[in-house]
């Protein structure tokens, strides 16, 4: 309970700053409108107007909250205007991409730890892959997959996996190498092979590293899925919602979709945190 007060204080400060920024950024429109109509506006009227414009430069927090609430609860979940619908489209691609990325990341890490050639060759490529802007790759992936008849979830999941495998590789390489020389020697005295060493020592020892990586990678998966919805004019998903919002200057819609994405990401990270606590407790590694 002690931690609630500081959190609320920070939240309050952010909201206050946001309102101030709303008034400042949207006032130009209000003044322009007033000048065109040839009327004087008082400061009070400016504030009242800036907080309730239809297409504000920066929507006020309560407008975003309204848009978010309307999107989440005000529509049938099958409606094209429902954020639950769009969120689910994005989430499904995120989860598939996350699964592919995690699996690929773990496999690559195991390869890197066990094979010197892979150690030398894979890591530089993995790093290089992440230096290319995902926005540049995404359209090509969509086009290539569309040419073989794959559209919708799979190409988005691939883009999502492209972003999410990397933290897993980095974390798992570190984790699989975390057992010290003594622990490896111990297994050698039992004449244990590589498979036993991996199964009995390296994988369990890497669990804390894996979960740290998964938290980063699930958020990256979501970004990947959203980015995958931006090109090729997808009609559903949070990314499509962002895109159509920007086409039509629906800033409130954009912000509502952004917040929906943030809530989704927070939820995913929290679920992984929960699994982490449960797993580590069962493994006797959480005190």
């Amino acid at each position: 309970m002690r931690s609630v007060l500081p959190i609320l204080a920070v939240l309050g400060a952010i909201v206050a700053l946001w309102y101030a920024a709303t008034v400042w950024l949207n006032s130009q429109w209000t003044y322009d409108q007033a000048a065109r109509a040839g009327v004087e506006v008082s400061f009070g009227e400016v504030v009242a107007d800036t907080l309730n414009q239809d297409r504000p430069v920066l929507p006020a927090p309560h407008q975003v909250a309204e848009g978010l609430w309307d999107g989440l609860a005000g529509q049938k979940v099958t409606s094209k205007r429902s954020l639950v619908y769009h969120g689910w489209v994005t989430l499904s691609a995120t989860l598939v991409g996350f699964a592919i990325g995690t699996g690929l990341g773990i496999l690559l890490a195991v390869g890197i730890v066990h094979n010197r050639a892979m150690d030398m060759s894979v890591m530089p490529w993995a790093i290089a892959s992440q230096t290319i802007p995902i926005l540049a790759i995404a359209p090509m992936v969509i086009v290539v997959f569309a040419s073989v008849g794959l559209t919708g979830l799979i190409p988005k999941a691939i883009i999502s996996a492209y972003l999410s495998f990397f933290p897993v590789v980095v974390g798992m390489v570190k984790g699989l190498r975390s057992p010290d020389a003594m622990q490896l020697d111990l297994l050698k005295t039992y004449n244990a092979g590589g498979w036993d060493t991996l199964r009995k020592l390296r994988l369990p020892a890497s669990m804390p590293y894996l979960f740290a990586s998964l938290k980063v990678s699930v958020a990256a998966s979501l970004v990947g899925a959203i980015v995958g919805e931006l090109p090729a004019g997808a009609t559903s998903g949070l990314g499509a919602r962002l895109l159509s919002g920007s086409y039509y200057g629906q800033t409130i819609q954009i912000w509502a979709a952004l917040f929906a994405a943030a809530i989704l990401a927070a939820g995913l990270v929290m679920i992984i945190g929960g699994i982490e606590r449960g797993t580590l407790r069962r493994m006797g590694m959480a005190r």
């Binding site: 111990l186 009995k200 590694m285």
Partner: peptide, 11 residues
């Protein structure tokens, strides 16, 4: 073989 540290697996 017994090492200087017990080296028990914490999990």
């Amino acid at each position: 073989y017994v090492f200087q540290a017990a080296g028990l697996y914490p999990w």
